[in-house]
């Protein structure tokens, strides 16, 4: 039982990171109708900036505050990078098929990832933080502190996003633009700005997720693959649902942790690293049953 609980908590911890990445995908998809395949590069860039910002600011008051400061700097700078990319490569493509824009983001992803990889170098770069792999005892259940931190950050992010979308002018404008671009334009919404803001938000979220991911083992060139695990998460939740993204991300994290803990005993024939691809297998199974995900809106087509 303890083992199961520990696995679930571990899953919720990594799941929180997936959920943030999934939210980033959904934010861009909702306002621009495009899947931003440059997300892995944004995450890698953000985490890399955090590894440089951390040592640069040193220790401010106490260690956890300085970690969040470096994450904040990384989020801001990554948002700026995202803004530049959006202005230069995505805005000119307004009105073109979503598939073409998605391929453009793949191209951006490759280029940005190589540049970020150049700053990382061959080994792993640590993000200074007070937690590392330390654990804490919660009523006999052992949890790593970094997982608790990820969950806390996710909670803050979700509350902030809810407030933003429900209570602010800009959030309303973004929902309007997502619902119907032309109608939003006629009501005075600057759809171009909406695109820019959604890209910046997605970039910042990716940077936060990347830095949290780097708490345990630092940043190396291969962690970009993690950002793609958010894709099964948004497929499970549906491409256009924020709640779905959070639930999907957490679900993918838990499934992965459970598979990691139990698959070797239950189904050893699946091989050693099956937990890495388990989210994709889960995604295929769900899509066979429900083609638009569990929370997604089925596309209504007109002739």
């Amino acid at each position: 039982m303890t083992e199961l609980l520990e696995a679930v908590l571990r899953g919720l911890g990594t799941g929180s990171i997936y959920a943030m990445l999934a939210l980033a995908f959904v934010i861009v998809y909702k306002s621009t109708g495009v899947i931003n395949f440059a997300q892995p590069a944004m995450m890698l860039a953000g985490a890399t900036i955090a590894t440089y910002a951390g040592p640069a600011i040193g220790v401010v008051l106490f260690a956890s505050l300085s970690f969040f400061l470096s994450v904040g700097i990384a989020a801001l700078l990554t948002a700026l990078i995202a803004l530049v990319i959006e202005r230069a490569a995505i805005r000119p493509m307004v009105g073109r098929p979503a598939f073409v824009v998605a391929i453009i983001t793949i191209g951006i992803d490759i280029a940005v990832r190589v540049v970020a990889g150049g700053f990382i170098g061959l080994g792993a770069r640590p993000v200074p933080n007070p937690w590392g792999l330390d654990g804490v005892d919660l009523a006999g259940v052992r949890v790593q502190q970094r997982h608790l931190v990820s969950m806390a950050v996710l909670t803050v992010v979700v509350l902030a996003l809810l407030h933003f979308y429900r209570r602010t002018r800009y959030g309303l404008a973004m929902r309007a633009a997502a619902f119907d671009q032309e109608a939003a334009l006629t009501q005075g919404v600057n759809v171009g700005n909406v695109f820019a803001v959604s890209w910046a938000m997605a970039g910042a979220l990716a940077a936060v997720a990347g830095s949290l991911l780097a708490i345990s083992a630092g940043v190396d060139r291969r962690i970009w693959v993690v950002a793609l695990i958010a894709l099964p998460a948004i497929i499970l939740g549906g491409l256009d649902s924020l709640e779905g993204a959070v639930i999907g991300g957490l679900a993918v994290g838990v499934v992965q942790a459970l598979v990691g803990s139990y698959q070797r005993e239950v189904a050893p024939w699946l091989g050693d690293n099956f937990s890495v691809v388990a989210p994709y297998v889960l995604m295929l199974l769900v899509l066979l049953a429900k083609p638009y995900g569990i929370f997604g809106t089925p596309e209504v087509r007109r002739v």
């Binding site: 495009v34 099964p232 995604m283 083609p291 596309e299």
Partner: peptide, 18 residues
């Protein structure tokens, strides 16, 4: 045959990883 556009892109991407 059940999926269109970007959903299909994501599924085929999963195929590469699997």
């Amino acid at each position: 045959t059940r999926l269109r556009g970007l959903y299909l892109a994501i599924v085929t991407l999963g195929l590469v990883f699997i």
